[in-house]
Amino acid sequence: MQCDQCEERAVYNELGKTYCKNHFLSYFEKKVEKTIKKYSLIQKNDKVCVATSGGKDSLAALYTTMLYCNEYKIPFFALAIDEGIAAYRDHTLKDLKTFCDKYNIQFRVISFKKAFGKTLDEVQNKAITVLNKKPCTVCGIFRRTLLNRSARELGATKLVTGHNLDDESQSFLMNLLKGNMRHNAALGPVSGLSENEKFITRVKPLYHMTERETRLFCVLRKFEVNFNECPNIHLSFRANVRDVLNEIENKSPGAKHGMINAFLEILPELKKKYREERKEFQYCKKCNDPCAGDICNACKQEAELCKEVV
């Protein structure tokens, strides 16, 4: 099959678009730039921190953010969290270092071990057996906290994440199935519900790109990426939702785009409703980060999982 735009061989054929390598790369980069501009994800006075893992999504986000920031002379850097997942994160961090060296990007690595005293592997059994918490729940709370805290300490005003259309449609459906519309109100190209000087605004330049497009971009750009799944993914609710959505997409192409476009229509109303219902912030008595109670979730979790009982 031939590209829509030229006579080259096509490598992409989805939803009525057929592109060769060069036209696909151009389509991907232009669509990300359009997303950044449409939702004002990055502005000229920002200092941008790109949350990276070395996986395909974050490398694509880092590369496209780099293109945008270089074009508009906006400072940016990469930040990685090392959760301490053996035979997984060490590979992706190595790929990330190679990538940042190649493009001359400043990057920092912050570890669970240093911040909380233990790796995810070290607390996983206790999380499952004693607290009945899945590793992904534990990891999510620590990662979000550490990303926000580190980005803030490093002077960032925006935190870019590699979340794509698949991630967002999975999150939307997961929250819907759990009956948690408040969590859905916190989704969108600009994440979160609450404005507070201690929260760095999270933004998603890959919001309208699918997981498949993102990997194709990485393959065609020849990024050296470790494509292994996190070993804990099979324990997550997300993996079930992901499989169901992929089955639906296979039978009804465009379903994920349709779901997210419909979600974006109701999102402003959702954010308005849940912002109005939100109580005043309190500040964690341990770390002083904004939270809903006396102690934030990360400090609670740290006390439950990381402190030795004497």
């Binding site: 996986g55 395909k56 999504d57 799944e229 804990n232 993914i233």
Partner: peptide, 8 residues
């Protein structure tokens, strides 16, 4: 056959 699913 390359998997497009990664992450965690």
């Amino acid at each position: 056959i390359l998997s497009v699913v990664s992450g965690g």
